[in-house]
Design a protein around this nucleic acid. Structure first.
Lengths: 125, 125
DNA sequence: CGAAAGCATGAACGTATATTCAGATATTCG
DNA sequence: CGAATATCTGAATATACGTTCATGCTTTCG
């Protein structure tokens, strides 16, 4: 049983490399992402990687809504919506306004709207 | 033990709603996302939600690279890189070119590059 | 041909995450 | 004040996902 073929666990050694002069792309300006930068950027994209959150954004792209309206629009529980809005809030993608016992959410700034619209158009082909 | 308080399992009923005339945002053009659209869009963002894939994109934004170079640049196994490249390939975010026993990857089109650069600039503040 | 390099792939394991459930907080109204 | 409404929150469960491990495939070279 203990026969474990140890196939040189694919360590990271630069065997090949240096094959062609760095032609560099037309738009090659920024240096590669560091680990930390990539993690931060990944967290940003992860926020928009959820269908529920995206539908919330698409609703808020048109108007301001309270939690219960958002919940009924998406046919989901208010609890689930509230959890997702919290994530969007923490990342400053949405902001909110309290009016009585209701809380109205809206997109925080135009950056989010623009990014959403850009990607949406890109996926419509 | 079986005392389960049935706290009206938060069904989806439109109790409130209709509070204000639909003022509609300045840039309110597109209808809300359907479930299927949001899933598809979510899959797109999910691809860019991983630090490793983002670092790959950031490298490929500057030039074309083979798998082993990408692996050594990120200090990761070629297997892990290959798996991630497959995901990027399946979504047509990267394309590749075989040369001998090496495979050179590059960004598939300028859309990806532009989106990456836009978001990166947006996160640098 | 046979060995090694470069890359791809399937299974498995560990972790992250979205929803549900139960309950808490805050506000309005009788 | 007490009940109802609107929202938030923590814990738990189920599922998705990334890496590792082992192996297969293709090409190059002796």
């Amino acid at each position: 049983m203990t026969a474990r073929a140890k196939s040189a666990p694919q360590t990271t050694e630069n065997h090949c490399s240096k094959h062609h002069a760095l032609a560099s792309h037309p738009a090659a300006k920024l240096p590669p992402l560091t680990v930390m930068e990539s993690q931060r950027m990944g967290e940003f994209f992860a926020l928009l990687a959820d269908p529920t959150r995206l539908r919330l954004v698409s609703l808020l792209a048109a108007d301001e809504f309270c939690v219960c309206d958002l919940a009924s629009s998406l046919s989901m529980t208010e609890s689930a919506i509230s959890h997702q809005l919290r994530a969007l809030r923490a990342a400053r993608l949405v902001s909110y306004r309290k009016e009585g016992r209701q809380v109205f959410y809206r997109l925080h700034d135009h950056h989010v709207l623009e990014l959403y619209q850009t990607v949406r158009e890109h996926l419509e082909e």
